[in-house]
Protein backbone atom coordinates (compact mmCIF):
# COMPACT_ATOMS: atom_id res chain seq x y z
CA UNK A 1 0.00 0.00 0.00
CA UNK A 2 1.25 3.47 -0.79
CA UNK A 3 1.98 5.93 1.97
CA UNK A 4 -1.03 7.98 0.78
CA UNK A 5 -3.37 5.13 1.43
CA UNK A 6 -2.18 4.49 4.95
CA UNK A 7 -4.90 5.37 7.43
CA UNK A 8 -3.71 8.27 9.59
CA UNK A 9 -2.95 7.89 13.28
CA UNK A 10 -5.29 9.25 15.98
CA UNK A 11 -4.67 9.72 19.69
CA UNK A 12 -7.51 8.49 21.90
CA UNK A 13 -8.72 10.08 25.14
CA UNK A 14 -11.37 8.44 27.33
CA UNK A 15 -13.51 9.87 30.12
CA UNK A 16 -13.94 6.94 32.54
CA UNK A 17 -17.11 8.38 34.08
CA UNK A 18 -18.74 11.77 34.26
CA UNK A 19 -16.95 14.03 36.70
CA UNK A 20 -13.52 12.85 35.56
CA UNK A 21 -11.28 14.35 32.87
CA UNK A 22 -10.54 12.65 29.55
CA UNK A 23 -7.31 10.72 29.80
CA UNK A 24 -4.94 9.62 27.05
CA UNK A 25 -5.22 5.86 26.58
CA UNK A 26 -3.36 5.14 23.34
CA UNK A 27 -3.64 5.51 19.61
CA UNK A 28 -5.09 3.83 16.54
CA UNK A 29 -5.32 4.13 12.76
CA UNK A 30 -8.57 5.14 11.05
CA UNK A 31 -9.60 6.52 7.67
CA UNK A 32 -11.44 9.46 9.25
CA UNK A 33 -12.51 10.82 12.62
CA UNK A 34 -15.84 8.96 12.68
CA UNK A 35 -14.09 5.68 12.12
CA UNK A 36 -11.55 6.65 14.77
CA UNK A 37 -14.38 7.01 17.31
CA UNK A 38 -15.81 3.62 16.32
CA UNK A 39 -12.42 1.91 16.51
CA UNK A 40 -11.71 3.58 19.84
CA UNK A 41 -15.02 2.21 21.13
CA UNK A 42 -14.00 -1.32 20.08
CA UNK A 43 -10.40 -1.06 21.16
CA UNK A 44 -10.49 0.87 24.42
CA UNK A 45 -13.96 0.44 25.96
CA UNK A 46 -14.71 -3.31 25.73
CA UNK A 47 -15.10 -3.43 29.51
CA UNK A 48 -17.03 -0.26 30.26
CA UNK A 49 -13.85 1.80 30.58
CA UNK A 50 -15.53 4.96 29.39
CA UNK A 51 -18.58 7.14 28.86
CA UNK A 52 -17.02 9.59 26.39
CA UNK A 53 -14.30 9.46 23.72
CA UNK A 54 -12.12 12.17 22.18
CA UNK A 55 -9.97 11.43 19.13
CA UNK A 56 -7.33 13.84 17.83
CA UNK A 57 -5.21 13.38 14.69
CA UNK A 58 -1.73 12.67 16.07
CA UNK A 59 -0.24 15.01 13.48
CA UNK A 60 -2.10 17.90 15.15
CA UNK A 61 -0.37 17.46 18.49
CA UNK A 62 2.47 19.82 19.29
CA UNK A 63 4.80 18.50 21.97
CA UNK A 64 7.60 20.00 24.05
CA UNK A 65 11.15 18.82 23.42
CA UNK A 66 12.74 16.69 26.18
CA UNK A 67 15.96 18.70 25.62
CA UNK A 68 14.04 21.76 26.86
CA UNK A 69 13.00 20.04 30.06
CA UNK A 70 15.31 22.12 32.26
CA UNK A 71 14.50 25.41 30.58
CA UNK A 72 10.79 24.74 30.91
CA UNK A 73 10.46 23.13 34.28
CA UNK A 74 13.58 23.95 36.29
CA UNK A 75 12.41 27.50 37.19
CA UNK A 76 9.56 26.04 39.29
CA UNK A 77 11.98 24.04 41.44
CA UNK A 78 13.20 26.83 43.72
CA UNK A 79 9.75 28.32 44.27
CA UNK A 80 8.74 26.16 47.20
CA UNK A 81 6.87 29.19 48.58
CA UNK A 82 4.11 28.27 46.14
CA UNK A 83 3.26 25.31 48.40
CA UNK A 84 1.26 25.72 51.63
CA UNK A 85 3.78 23.64 53.63
CA UNK A 86 6.39 26.38 53.10
CA UNK A 87 4.73 28.49 55.82
CA UNK A 88 5.26 27.56 59.48
CA UNK A 89 2.05 28.13 61.45
CA UNK A 90 1.92 27.41 65.21
CA UNK A 91 -0.05 24.28 66.13
CA UNK A 92 -2.54 26.20 68.27
CA UNK A 93 -3.78 28.11 65.27
CA UNK A 94 -6.64 26.08 63.83
CA UNK A 95 -8.36 25.94 60.47
CA UNK A 96 -5.49 27.36 58.45
Amino acid sequence: MTQQNQWPLYEVFIRARSGLEHKHVGSLHAADSNMAIEHARDLYTRRQEGVSIWVVPSAQIVASDPADTDALFEPAKDKVYRHPTFYAIPDEVKNL
Binding site: L9, E11, G26, S27, S58, A59, Q60, V62, A63, P66
Partner: peptide, 13 residues
Protein backbone atom coordinates in the same frame (compact mmCIF):
# COMPACT_ATOMS: atom_id res chain seq x y z
CA UNK B 1 0.64 5.82 21.07
CA UNK B 2 1.57 9.34 20.31
CA UNK B 3 3.93 9.54 17.38
CA UNK B 4 3.78 12.16 14.61
CA UNK B 5 3.73 15.61 16.35
CA UNK B 6 5.70 13.70 18.84
CA UNK B 7 7.51 12.08 16.06
CA UNK B 8 9.96 14.87 15.51
CA UNK B 9 12.71 13.62 17.77
CA UNK B 10 14.08 15.70 20.61
CA UNK B 11 17.14 17.90 20.02
CA UNK B 12 19.29 15.40 21.93
CA UNK B 13 18.60 12.87 19.21
Amino acid sequence: MYTQGLDTLGADC
